[in-house]
């Protein structure tokens, strides 16, 4: 099958989103299903088909999401309605929209400079809760409360910790 000439291809736009909490590992397919569900539930099947969303890439804490040109606004609104993906609480913050993936990669490279602060899991205390630090970016610290199931995640700053 030959590919269509560029003039006959449909025009697309690429939306760069930042995935929070930083450091979470997401499967591309799972994120696609979350985006599709958000678009379909908000705009319906017909408009959802016209938006034609697809997750092109996940690189670190960023994802590139494709849509048909002219439907970026609809996609951005639907993206702000995503609250979880494969059982994990997430939020997608729209960073930029572009006609090429390349320009979004340049944007990503600029933003990644301040985003690479991994820490060793150390114990700390917050308001009487014994916690383990799981992510540290600048002043921001994410900790997980130590307990039977280790599931409660607190979003704090360095000033909030007791030791």
């Amino acid at each position: 099958m030959t590919s269509r000439p560029p003039t006959l291809r449909e025009k697309r736009r690429y939306v760069l989103v930042q995935i929070e909490p930083v450091g979470i590992l997401l499967d591309q397919k799972e994120l696609y299903f979350a985006v599709l569900e958000a678009v379909t539930s908000l705009w319906g099947d017909a408009a959802g088909a016209f938006v034609h969303p697809a997750v092109v890439a996940i690189e670190g804490s960023f994802a590139v999401i494709r849509c048909r040109r002219g439907t970026e606004r609809e996609l951005a609104i639907a993206l702000s309605c995503i609250t979880s993906c494969s059982g994990q609480r997430i939020v997608l913050h729209t960073v930029a929209t572009s006609g090429t993936i390349e320009s979004l990669r340049e944007r990503m490279a600029l933003m990644k400079i301040s985003d690479n602060e991994d820490v060793q899991p150390v114990e700390c205390a917050f308001k009487g809760h014994l916690c383990t630090v799981c992510k540290c970016t600048g002043q921001k610290i994410d900790v997980i409360e130590k307990g039977f199931k280790n599931t409660t995640r607190f979003f704090l700053t360095k000033e909030d910790l007791e030791n």
Binding site: S80, T83, V91, T94
Partner: peptide, 18 residues
């Protein structure tokens, strides 16, 4: 109730168009 539920000013204006 969490930083994950906060939205940007851009998201506010997008959602408010609804």
């Amino acid at each position: 109730h969490s930083v994950l539920e906060l939205r940007s000013v851009r998201d506010f204006s997008a959602l408010a168009t609804l």
